[in-house]
């Protein structure tokens, strides 16, 4: 039974679906957590402290890394197979078919953008927080200012006071939205939960989830940028 996850197309897609589902759940959690920063820096930092260099947080991070890795590795594998299946000779004229979303045809490109954004994000935050703690340090100096590794709120405020960071994050989140708008529906389709009635409903639902996640993240970014301008 188990090898169908490696040697059948639908099995491989199931791996994509389940790893994708896991990442969506993580994003939902992460986004909910970020929303806390809008209301109270202390609350947010308490969560940061809770998710510091504790064994469960480290274990969770490792699982998360594995999830991203599996999702990306399978994506590459499938793409290589799919390109082969498409054949050497390509169409001279191509069009976008009616009702086909741009995102659905560019998931790998979007995925690469997301991974790129993730790298930047990890440098901005994770390396200054959990990594610092894991190294046994208790403070980090960024742009001449000293932060505690659990002062997530401070890091947020600092990072999103820079317009270029805001721009990078907005582009990143846009890519994420496109990726999720297709991916969230796709993972449901892959596990086989759709019929003519539910097809439009599920499509709508996944757009909502994508918008909720990306909107939530973007809200925090923009909130802190505007705050840094001193408007509120």
């Amino acid at each position: 039974m188990s090898n169908f996850l490696c040697n059948s197309s639908i099995g491989k897609k199931l791996v994509m679906s389940i790893s994708g589902c896991f990442l969506v759940l993580f994003l939902l959690f992460h986004m909910s957590m970020n929303i806390a920063a809008l209301f109270s820096a202390e609350a947010y930092n308490a969560i940061c402290g809770f998710l510091g260099a504790n064994w469960y947080a480290v274990a969770g991070t490792l699982v998360l890394v594995a999830g991203v890795f599996v999702h990306f590795a399978y994506a590459l594998w499938l793409t290589i197979q799919n390109r082969k299946a498409r054949g050497q000779q390509r169409y001279a004229v191509t069009v976008t078919e009616k009702g086909v979303s741009w995102a659905s045809k560019n998931m790998l490109v979007l995925g690469v953008i997301i991974i790129g954004g993730l790298a930047i994000h990890l440098i901005h935050f994770w390396s200054n927080m959990m990594l610092v703690e894991l190294m046994g340090e208790h403070s980090v100096v960024i742009a001449g200012v000293e932060y505690a590794p659990t002062d997530g709120a401070g890091l947020i405020a600092f990072t999103f006071s820079k317009w270029y960071n805001v721009l990078i994050y907005v582009v990143w989140l846009a890519a994420l939205w496109f990726h999720l708008s297709h991916g969230a529906w796709s993972m449901i389709q892959t596990v086989g939960w759709a019929n003519d009635k539910w097809y439009p409903r599920l499509k709508c639902l996944s757009t909502l989830v994508a918008t909720l996640i990306c909107g939530g993240f973007a809200l925090v970014v923009i909130f802190f940028y505007i705050k840094s301008l001193g408007c509120c």
């Binding site: 082969k84 299946a85 078919e97 796709s186």
Partner: peptide, 17 residues
């Protein structure tokens, strides 16, 4: 289908269109 070298469905929906 897999053996014959067809690709993997990524749910684009181009086929139904």
């Amino acid at each position: 289908m897999d053996e014959l070298g067809f690709g993997n469905c990524t749910n684009t929906g181009a086929c139904q269109a």
